[in-house]
Design a protein around this nucleic acid. Structure first.
Lengths: 155, 155
DNA sequence: TGGAATTTGACTAATATTGACTATTATTAT
DNA sequence: ATAATAATAGTCAATATTAGTCAAATTCCA
Protein backbone atom coordinates (compact mmCIF):
# COMPACT_ATOMS: atom_id res chain seq x y z
CA UNK A 1 0.00 0.00 0.00
CA UNK A 2 1.00 3.58 -0.35
CA UNK A 3 2.05 5.92 2.43
CA UNK A 4 -0.47 6.39 5.17
CA UNK A 5 0.12 9.98 6.12
CA UNK A 6 -2.86 11.96 7.33
CA UNK A 7 -2.96 14.20 4.28
CA UNK A 8 -3.40 11.21 1.99
CA UNK A 9 -6.15 9.82 4.20
CA UNK A 10 -8.03 13.11 4.23
CA UNK A 11 -7.62 13.36 0.48
CA UNK A 12 -9.07 9.88 0.00
CA UNK A 13 -11.95 10.63 2.28
CA UNK A 14 -12.90 13.77 0.37
CA UNK A 15 -12.50 12.08 -2.98
CA UNK A 16 -14.68 9.19 -1.90
CA UNK A 17 -17.46 11.66 -1.28
CA UNK A 18 -16.75 13.44 -4.54
CA UNK A 19 -17.05 10.12 -6.35
CA UNK A 20 -20.72 10.13 -5.42
CA UNK A 21 -21.55 13.80 -5.75
CA UNK A 22 -20.39 16.83 -7.64
CA UNK A 23 -19.58 18.83 -4.55
CA UNK A 24 -18.64 18.39 -0.91
CA UNK A 25 -19.07 20.86 1.93
CA UNK A 26 -17.10 20.59 5.14
CA UNK A 27 -16.41 22.52 8.27
CA UNK A 28 -12.68 22.87 8.73
CA UNK A 29 -12.66 22.37 12.48
CA UNK A 30 -14.95 19.34 12.36
CA UNK A 31 -12.75 17.85 9.70
CA UNK A 32 -9.66 18.45 11.78
CA UNK A 33 -11.29 16.80 14.76
CA UNK A 34 -12.43 13.84 12.71
CA UNK A 35 -8.88 13.19 11.54
CA UNK A 36 -7.22 14.30 14.73
CA UNK A 37 -5.08 16.99 13.16
CA UNK A 38 -4.72 20.76 13.33
CA UNK A 39 -7.20 22.78 11.24
CA UNK A 40 -4.55 24.20 8.99
CA UNK A 41 -3.75 20.72 7.76
CA UNK A 42 -7.08 20.79 5.99
CA UNK A 43 -5.86 23.83 4.09
CA UNK A 44 -2.68 21.99 3.24
CA UNK A 45 -4.59 19.06 1.80
CA UNK A 46 -6.84 21.34 -0.18
CA UNK A 47 -3.99 23.43 -1.54
CA UNK A 48 -1.89 20.47 -2.57
CA UNK A 49 -4.60 18.12 -3.84
CA UNK A 50 -7.69 20.06 -4.80
CA UNK A 51 -6.48 22.88 -7.00
CA UNK A 52 -7.62 23.73 -10.49
CA UNK A 53 -4.88 21.65 -12.09
CA UNK A 54 -6.53 18.65 -10.49
CA UNK A 55 -9.95 19.72 -11.70
CA UNK A 56 -11.36 21.16 -8.51
CA UNK A 57 -12.45 24.59 -7.41
CA UNK A 58 -12.76 25.58 -3.78
CA UNK A 59 -14.97 28.22 -2.20
CA UNK A 60 -15.16 29.04 1.48
CA UNK A 61 -16.69 31.38 4.00
CA UNK A 62 -15.49 32.37 7.47
CA UNK A 63 -17.53 33.39 10.48
CA UNK A 64 -20.64 31.78 11.90
CA UNK A 65 -21.92 29.06 9.61
CA UNK A 66 -18.62 29.08 7.76
CA UNK A 67 -17.69 26.26 5.40
CA UNK A 68 -15.31 24.97 2.78
CA UNK A 69 -16.82 23.66 -0.43
CA UNK A 70 -14.94 21.59 -2.95
CA UNK A 71 -16.48 21.06 -6.37
CA UNK A 72 -15.40 19.04 -9.35
CA UNK A 73 -15.23 20.96 -12.61
CA UNK A 74 -15.14 19.77 -16.17
CA UNK A 75 -11.85 20.71 -17.74
CA UNK A 76 -12.17 21.73 -21.35
CA UNK A 77 -10.48 19.89 -24.19
CA UNK A 78 -7.90 22.55 -24.99
CA UNK A 79 -6.66 22.58 -21.44
CA UNK A 80 -3.08 21.92 -22.40
CA UNK A 81 -3.21 24.60 -25.07
CA UNK A 82 -4.25 27.06 -22.40
CA UNK A 83 -1.41 25.86 -20.18
CA UNK A 84 0.97 26.51 -23.03
CA UNK A 85 -0.38 30.02 -23.43
CA UNK A 86 0.02 30.58 -19.70
CA UNK A 87 3.64 29.65 -20.07
CA UNK A 88 4.05 32.11 -22.91
CA UNK A 89 2.51 34.94 -20.89
CA UNK A 90 5.06 34.36 -18.17
CA UNK A 91 5.65 37.06 -15.60
CA UNK A 92 5.28 40.07 -17.85
CA UNK A 93 3.39 40.91 -21.01
CA UNK A 94 2.79 44.06 -23.05
CA UNK A 95 -0.58 45.35 -24.18
CA UNK A 96 0.26 44.60 -27.76
CA UNK A 97 1.07 40.97 -27.05
CA UNK A 98 -2.04 40.60 -24.89
CA UNK A 99 -4.11 42.16 -27.62
CA UNK A 100 -2.88 39.54 -30.07
CA UNK A 101 -3.61 36.77 -27.60
CA UNK A 102 -7.16 37.91 -26.91
CA UNK A 103 -7.74 38.40 -30.62
CA UNK A 104 -6.61 34.82 -31.22
CA UNK A 105 -8.96 33.54 -28.56
CA UNK A 106 -11.79 35.43 -30.23
CA UNK A 107 -10.91 34.04 -33.64
CA UNK A 108 -10.81 30.56 -32.17
CA UNK A 109 -14.34 31.13 -30.84
CA UNK A 110 -13.17 30.80 -27.26
CA UNK A 111 -14.35 34.33 -26.55
CA UNK A 112 -17.29 36.26 -27.95
CA UNK A 113 -16.74 39.68 -29.48
CA UNK A 114 -18.33 41.39 -26.50
CA UNK A 115 -16.28 39.49 -23.96
CA UNK A 116 -13.09 40.06 -25.88
CA UNK A 117 -13.78 43.79 -26.00
CA UNK A 118 -14.41 43.93 -22.28
CA UNK A 119 -11.20 42.08 -21.54
CA UNK A 120 -9.32 44.44 -23.82
CA UNK A 121 -10.70 47.34 -21.82
CA UNK A 122 -9.45 45.66 -18.66
CA UNK A 123 -5.87 45.19 -19.84
CA UNK A 124 -5.72 48.52 -21.65
CA UNK A 125 -2.68 50.69 -20.96
CA UNK A 126 -4.88 53.40 -19.51
CA UNK A 127 -6.44 50.99 -17.05
CA UNK A 128 -3.18 49.51 -15.82
CA UNK A 129 -0.91 52.53 -16.13
CA UNK A 130 0.85 53.48 -12.88
CA UNK A 131 3.83 55.30 -14.29
CA UNK A 132 5.83 52.10 -14.01
CA UNK A 133 5.81 50.05 -17.19
CA UNK A 134 7.32 46.98 -15.58
CA UNK A 135 4.64 46.93 -12.90
CA UNK A 136 2.02 47.43 -15.58
CA UNK A 137 3.24 44.48 -17.64
CA UNK A 138 3.57 42.30 -14.58
CA UNK A 139 0.02 43.08 -13.50
CA UNK A 140 -1.22 42.45 -17.02
CA UNK A 141 0.50 39.07 -17.00
CA UNK A 142 -1.27 38.09 -13.81
CA UNK A 143 -4.61 39.17 -15.23
CA UNK A 144 -4.04 37.30 -18.47
CA UNK A 145 -3.07 34.15 -16.60
CA UNK A 146 -6.18 34.38 -14.45
CA UNK A 147 -8.27 34.66 -17.60
CA UNK A 148 -6.57 31.69 -19.23
CA UNK A 149 -6.93 29.61 -16.10
CA UNK A 150 -10.60 30.43 -15.87
CA UNK A 151 -11.10 29.37 -19.46
CA UNK A 152 -9.95 25.87 -18.54
CA UNK A 153 -13.35 24.96 -17.17
CA UNK A 154 -16.92 26.03 -17.70
CA UNK A 155 -19.86 26.65 -15.43
CA UNK B 1 -25.77 24.07 0.51
CA UNK B 2 -26.86 24.09 4.12
CA UNK B 3 -25.09 27.14 5.49
CA UNK B 4 -26.98 27.38 8.71
CA UNK B 5 -26.39 30.88 9.89
CA UNK B 6 -29.40 33.04 10.54
CA UNK B 7 -28.30 35.81 8.20
CA UNK B 8 -28.30 33.46 5.21
CA UNK B 9 -31.72 32.16 6.14
CA UNK B 10 -33.17 35.63 6.43
CA UNK B 11 -31.58 36.56 3.12
CA UNK B 12 -33.12 33.54 1.42
CA UNK B 13 -36.51 34.30 2.89
CA UNK B 14 -36.49 37.86 1.61
CA UNK B 15 -35.21 36.83 -1.80
CA UNK B 16 -37.90 34.18 -2.12
CA UNK B 17 -40.46 36.93 -1.75
CA UNK B 18 -38.57 39.19 -4.14
CA UNK B 19 -38.57 36.41 -6.70
CA UNK B 20 -42.33 36.83 -6.92
CA UNK B 21 -42.65 40.58 -6.60
CA UNK B 22 -40.65 43.69 -7.28
CA UNK B 23 -40.67 44.85 -3.68
CA UNK B 24 -41.03 43.55 -0.14
CA UNK B 25 -42.06 45.43 2.97
CA UNK B 26 -41.28 44.19 6.45
CA UNK B 27 -41.42 45.29 10.04
CA UNK B 28 -38.02 44.93 11.60
CA UNK B 29 -39.20 43.70 14.99
CA UNK B 30 -41.62 41.18 13.53
CA UNK B 31 -38.88 39.90 11.32
CA UNK B 32 -36.54 39.55 14.26
CA UNK B 33 -39.17 37.64 16.20
CA UNK B 34 -39.90 35.37 13.26
CA UNK B 35 -36.26 34.39 13.00
CA UNK B 36 -35.54 34.54 16.70
CA UNK B 37 -32.80 37.11 16.50
CA UNK B 38 -32.13 40.66 17.66
CA UNK B 39 -33.62 43.44 15.51
CA UNK B 40 -30.27 44.81 14.50
CA UNK B 41 -29.48 41.56 12.76
CA UNK B 42 -32.09 42.53 10.19
CA UNK B 43 -30.04 45.64 9.50
CA UNK B 44 -26.95 43.49 9.18
CA UNK B 45 -28.59 41.28 6.59
CA UNK B 46 -29.87 44.26 4.65
CA UNK B 47 -26.56 46.08 4.72
CA UNK B 48 -24.53 43.08 3.64
CA UNK B 49 -26.95 41.53 1.12
CA UNK B 50 -29.39 44.12 -0.14
CA UNK B 51 -27.28 47.14 -0.99
CA UNK B 52 -27.13 48.90 -4.31
CA UNK B 53 -24.22 46.76 -5.48
CA UNK B 54 -26.56 43.83 -5.16
CA UNK B 55 -29.21 45.58 -7.18
CA UNK B 56 -31.53 46.63 -4.40
CA UNK B 57 -32.61 49.88 -2.88
CA UNK B 58 -33.92 50.14 0.64
CA UNK B 59 -36.23 52.72 2.12
CA UNK B 60 -37.49 52.78 5.66
CA UNK B 61 -39.49 54.75 8.16
CA UNK B 62 -39.33 54.79 11.95
CA UNK B 63 -42.06 55.48 14.47
CA UNK B 64 -45.57 54.06 14.54
CA UNK B 65 -46.37 52.16 11.38
CA UNK B 66 -42.71 52.08 10.54
CA UNK B 67 -41.36 49.71 7.91
CA UNK B 68 -38.44 48.60 5.82
CA UNK B 69 -38.98 48.27 2.10
CA UNK B 70 -36.59 46.46 -0.19
CA UNK B 71 -37.00 46.91 -3.93
CA UNK B 72 -35.15 45.49 -6.90
CA UNK B 73 -33.67 48.07 -9.24
CA UNK B 74 -33.38 47.74 -12.96
CA UNK B 75 -29.74 48.08 -13.97
CA UNK B 76 -30.40 47.78 -17.67
CA UNK B 77 -32.38 50.91 -18.40
CA UNK B 78 -31.68 52.94 -15.31
CA UNK B 79 -28.75 55.14 -16.24
CA UNK B 80 -28.70 56.88 -12.88
CA UNK B 81 -28.08 53.57 -11.17
CA UNK B 82 -25.13 52.82 -13.42
CA UNK B 83 -23.64 56.20 -12.66
CA UNK B 84 -24.22 55.65 -8.99
CA UNK B 85 -22.37 52.36 -9.22
CA UNK B 86 -19.41 54.03 -10.88
CA UNK B 87 -19.44 56.51 -8.03
CA UNK B 88 -19.51 53.74 -5.47
CA UNK B 89 -16.49 52.08 -7.03
CA UNK B 90 -14.57 55.30 -6.52
CA UNK B 91 -10.83 54.98 -6.07
CA UNK B 92 -10.89 51.76 -4.09
CA UNK B 93 -13.14 48.72 -3.90
CA UNK B 94 -12.96 45.33 -2.18
CA UNK B 95 -13.37 42.01 -3.91
CA UNK B 96 -16.60 41.37 -2.10
CA UNK B 97 -18.23 44.58 -3.30
CA UNK B 98 -17.01 44.00 -6.84
CA UNK B 99 -18.28 40.46 -6.71
CA UNK B 100 -21.73 41.68 -5.77
CA UNK B 101 -21.65 44.23 -8.52
CA UNK B 102 -20.67 41.81 -11.25
CA UNK B 103 -23.25 39.34 -10.01
CA UNK B 104 -25.89 42.05 -10.27
CA UNK B 105 -24.83 42.88 -13.81
CA UNK B 106 -25.17 39.23 -14.72
CA UNK B 107 -28.59 38.95 -13.15
CA UNK B 108 -29.65 42.05 -15.04
CA UNK B 109 -28.52 40.37 -18.28
CA UNK B 110 -25.88 43.01 -18.87
CA UNK B 111 -23.20 40.32 -18.75
CA UNK B 112 -23.36 36.70 -19.84
CA UNK B 113 -22.46 34.00 -17.35
CA UNK B 114 -19.16 33.33 -19.10
CA UNK B 115 -18.16 36.97 -19.20
CA UNK B 116 -19.11 37.47 -15.58
CA UNK B 117 -17.02 34.48 -14.56
CA UNK B 118 -14.01 35.76 -16.48
CA UNK B 119 -14.30 39.20 -14.93
CA UNK B 120 -14.56 37.65 -11.49
CA UNK B 121 -11.33 35.82 -12.17
CA UNK B 122 -9.72 39.10 -13.22
CA UNK B 123 -10.64 40.97 -10.03
CA UNK B 124 -9.99 38.02 -7.73
CA UNK B 125 -7.87 38.68 -4.65
CA UNK B 126 -5.21 36.27 -5.83
CA UNK B 127 -4.93 38.00 -9.18
CA UNK B 128 -4.48 41.48 -7.77
CA UNK B 129 -2.58 40.65 -4.60
CA UNK B 130 0.73 42.49 -4.29
CA UNK B 131 1.01 42.31 -0.53
CA UNK B 132 -0.66 45.69 -0.17
CA UNK B 133 -4.41 45.66 0.31
CA UNK B 134 -4.83 49.33 -0.54
CA UNK B 135 -2.97 48.90 -3.81
CA UNK B 136 -5.07 45.84 -4.54
CA UNK B 137 -8.34 47.69 -4.00
CA UNK B 138 -7.11 50.63 -6.04
CA UNK B 139 -6.22 48.39 -8.97
CA UNK B 140 -9.57 46.71 -8.71
CA UNK B 141 -11.36 50.05 -8.73
CA UNK B 142 -9.63 51.05 -11.94
CA UNK B 143 -10.48 47.76 -13.56
CA UNK B 144 -14.10 47.94 -12.44
CA UNK B 145 -14.45 51.45 -13.77
CA UNK B 146 -12.99 50.40 -17.10
CA UNK B 147 -15.55 47.63 -17.25
CA UNK B 148 -18.46 49.87 -16.31
CA UNK B 149 -17.43 52.57 -18.73
CA UNK B 150 -17.08 50.05 -21.50
CA UNK B 151 -20.56 48.75 -20.75
CA UNK B 152 -21.95 52.24 -20.72
CA UNK B 153 -21.10 52.91 -24.35
CA UNK B 154 -21.50 49.37 -25.53
CA UNK B 155 -24.42 47.31 -26.70
C1' DT C 1 22.00 12.69 3.48
C1' DG C 2 19.76 16.50 1.50
C1' DG C 3 15.71 18.18 -0.47
C1' DA C 4 10.75 17.65 -0.69
C1' DA C 5 6.60 16.75 1.66
C1' DT C 6 4.14 16.90 5.82
C1' DT C 7 2.85 18.44 10.41
C1' DT C 8 2.12 21.95 13.70
C1' DG C 9 0.70 26.15 15.93
C1' DA C 10 0.84 31.11 16.51
C1' DC C 11 -0.95 34.81 14.35
C1' DT C 12 -4.29 37.05 11.02
C1' DA C 13 -8.62 37.94 8.52
C1' DA C 14 -13.41 37.60 7.49
C1' DT C 15 -18.10 37.10 8.85
C1' DA C 16 -21.89 36.77 12.17
C1' DT C 17 -24.23 37.82 16.51
C1' DT C 18 -25.58 40.69 20.19
C1' DG C 19 -27.05 44.58 22.84
C1' DA C 20 -26.66 49.22 24.55
C1' DC C 21 -27.44 53.56 22.95
C1' DT C 22 -29.37 56.93 19.46
C1' DA C 23 -32.65 58.93 16.03
C1' DT C 24 -36.99 59.49 13.93
C1' DT C 25 -41.95 59.45 13.55
C1' DA C 26 -46.61 58.88 15.38
C1' DT C 27 -49.87 59.29 19.00
C1' DT C 28 -51.71 61.02 23.17
C1' DA C 29 -52.28 64.26 26.93
C1' DT C 30 -52.48 68.96 28.50
C1' DA D 1 -50.49 73.89 19.57
C1' DT D 2 -47.16 71.90 22.35
C1' DA D 3 -45.14 68.60 25.19
C1' DA D 4 -44.71 64.06 26.68
C1' DT D 5 -44.74 59.37 25.52
C1' DA D 6 -44.82 55.35 22.65
C1' DA D 7 -43.32 52.95 18.77
C1' DT D 8 -40.65 52.17 15.66
C1' DA D 9 -35.76 51.77 12.92
C1' DG D 10 -30.42 52.92 12.85
C1' DT D 11 -25.57 52.82 14.53
C1' DC D 12 -21.67 51.03 16.40
C1' DA D 13 -18.60 48.48 18.90
C1' DA D 14 -17.71 44.30 21.60
C1' DT D 15 -17.63 39.47 21.21
C1' DA D 16 -18.05 35.00 18.98
C1' DT D 17 -17.24 31.98 15.27
C1' DT D 18 -15.35 30.49 11.78
C1' DA D 19 -11.30 29.94 7.87
C1' DG D 20 -6.46 31.52 5.97
C1' DT D 21 -1.39 32.36 6.13
C1' DC D 22 3.14 31.49 7.06
C1' DA D 23 7.14 29.55 8.55
C1' DA D 24 9.49 26.53 11.85
C1' DA D 25 9.94 21.79 13.04
C1' DT D 26 9.67 17.19 11.68
C1' DT D 27 9.37 13.23 8.77
C1' DC D 28 9.86 10.89 4.50
C1' DC D 29 12.45 9.05 0.64
C1' DA D 30 15.34 8.82 -3.42
Amino acid sequence: MQSQNISDIIEKYLKSILAESQEVEIKRSEMAQLFNCVPSQINYVINTRFNIQNGYIVRSKRGGGGYIRIAKVNLVDDCDVLDELIGIVGESITFKESFQLIKSLFQADVLTQTTANLLLAVIDKKTLNFGDVELENMLRARIMKSILNRLKYDG
